[in-house]
Design a protein around this nucleic acid. Structure first.
Lengths: 133, 133
DNA sequence: TATTGTTATACTCTATAACTATA
DNA sequence: TATAGTTATAGAGTATAACAATA
């Protein structure tokens, strides 16, 4: 919650929002993608991707390129501005992680992360059960 | 993220959304409140509270009651339906917490929580610095 | 027939600004 | 003058449904 609020404020300075940045982040991770693939990745309808891509195109962070073999599809592609923005965010994450966890001995970090993994797995199991009662 | 998605889906079954439920939760914690107080608590404009309270009133989870001494103000007040819904959520939280952490020895739970508190404090400090560079 | 992306429409959350009724 | 809440207006994110172009 703490992080989310700060991120929202910081992104606003670049004319971005959380969903738009999430989309850029996917492109940064997976490379140029069809809007269909982005809809699946962001768990959102294709109609929604149209709007996000429109906004990001206007802001200069990506472009729509024709798909090389499927003329129905377009490839959302980061511009240099979009790519360098994502590089900056990736670097910021590393710096923050180092600051938050960097001084922990490796074995303590391990056991901390293991505990988190365990709790996460239990949460997943609980939600799964609740899903089919 | 895992939790948020599931909560959103579960709430939708009761005709609720995350912000509306957050408002009900505040009333459950603090008792009947003015819309001004809710705006401060949810860190949202008063105009916004008007909309959330409208929706929740229509859904039968709360009512607007006159403030006993200030005729400008209204007190958002949980209906029995709203109160019992919040009681159910409070119970659900406890059950989930017990399932996620209930088997941990007290001292291990303590050190786990201490570590989380430390990381949170560092995060807060980092954000604070970033705020005034 | 099925899939990709778009247009059309609608709802929720959010914000700012102007206004009314009270304090 | 200042405060509580509303109306007016606008923008972003989300969804469903209908449609065009292409597979």
């Amino acid at each position: 919650m703490l992080l989310n609020e700060d991120m929202t404020r910081a992104l606003a300075r670049d004319g971005l929002t959380v969903p738009r940045t999430h989309l850029l982040w996917m492109l940064h991770q997976q490379g140029a993608s069809t809007q269909r693939a982005l809809a699946d990745a962001l768990k959102v309808t294709p109609r929604n991707i149209t709007g996000l891509v429109d906004g990001l195109t206007e802001a200069g962070y990506l472009t729509r390129e024709p798909h090389p073999t499927d003329r129905r599809a377009t490839l959302a592609t980061l511009t240099p501005a979009g790519a360098s923005l994502m590089d900056g965010i990736a670097r910021g994450r590393e710096v923050l992680a180092a600051r938050l966890f960097g001084d922990l001995p490796a074995d303590e970090l391990r056991s901390f992360l293991d505990r988190i993994d365990l709790v996460t797995a239990r949460l997943r199991a609980a939600l799964h059960e609740a899903g089919r009662p």
